Amino acid sequence: MRLAFFGDVMGRSGRTVLLEHLPRLRRRLKLDFVAVNAENAAGGFGITENICDALFEAGADVITTGNHAFDQRDEISLFDEEQRLLRPANFPSDNPGRGASMISVGGDRHVLVVHLHGQLFMAPMDDPVPALERELGGVSLGRDVHAIIVDMHAEASSEKYALAHYLDGRASLVVGTHTHVPTADAQILPGGTAFQSDLGMCGDYDSVIGMEKSGPISRFVSKMPGNRLQPAAGPGTACGVFVITDDTTGLATHIEPIRVGGRLITSQPAPIDYA
């Protein structure tokens, strides 16, 4: 299978660049499945039904979120209504929505997506490992599903690395989201699981992790809370990762970063078949 996962969509700038490039990338890379983290898509805080619909129409198959999942309070019911929209599995069990979803691809293949929330330097949350095992539920890669993808929405790279190695050989792809900065560590782990510790964001990088610069600078300098932060509105870069898996085992055979548009140096996989 040919998969792509795009990092945190930040405000209008992030939406614009991803909606512009995703249909073309889907065709050019012959993608079978696309995941998008969109927890900051609505003005930097949460997601709405209209944004979900636009991302699905552009080519997303599943949307993950994170600590800002429920920031748009008038839209919380969407998490119960839309099976392709996930909140972290280790949120309290009585929260709206679900932490995993099995998505059919072309009618005869299936991808299991599991979404988790980190514990280090984050708001207190249930242990992600028991939640992960509960969502996996004995599902075996290559036997029961054609791909397993895990989004670990976490601050600490150490926590993301530990989880990736814990899953090595059991998942097709483990990605980190949340820090809004793309890491240069895309790799295939020894057991065959593709991994990047943070995908970065889809948004304006002439910013402070996606926010207009003056607000965060003022907070750091003055130590005062200041006004509500606003997403930066300049040209965005869409950041993510491209992965190819073995059709028999579900394990990764190729991984490559994606960076298109905006300020960052472009990294665009060639539209060829990889061995």
Rank of each mutant, 00 (worst) to 15 (best):
T193P: 04
P235Y: 03
C202F: 04
V208S: 11
D204Y: 08
S214A: 15
P225Y: 00
G203T: 09
P235A: 15
A184S: 14
D204M: 10
L189S: 01
I217F: 13
A233Y: 00
D185Y: 04
D204Q: 10
A232S: 15
K223W: 02
K223M: 11
S197N: 01
S218P: 00
P231K: 11
F220N: 01
Q230P: 00
K223N: 11
T193N: 05
Y205E: 11
Q230M: 15
G234E: 10
L199D: 02
L189P: 05
I217E: 07
G192D: 08
M211F: 14
S222E: 04
G215D: 12
Q187T: 15
P225L: 07
R228N: 08
P235M: 07
R228S: 13
S214D: 15
D206W: 10
E212K: 13
Q187H: 03
F195P: 00
G191P: 04
G210E: 04
A233L: 12
E212A: 15
M211Y: 10
G215Q: 13
S207Y: 06
P225E: 12
K213Q: 11
G226F: 05
L189W: 01
F220G: 09
S197E: 03
S222W: 00
I209R: 06
S218Q: 09
Y205R: 06
L229S: 07
S218H: 10
K213H: 09
G210V: 02
A232D: 09
K223D: 13
S214W: 09
G234I: 08
T193K: 04
T193Q: 06
V221R: 09
S222T: 15
N227T: 11
G215V: 07
S218M: 10
R219S: 01
K223Q: 14
L229R: 09
P225W: 02
G200A: 03
L189M: 06
L199K: 02
L229M: 15
P190E: 05
M201V: 05
A186Q: 05
I188V: 14
L199R: 02
C202V: 03
S218N: 12
G192N: 07
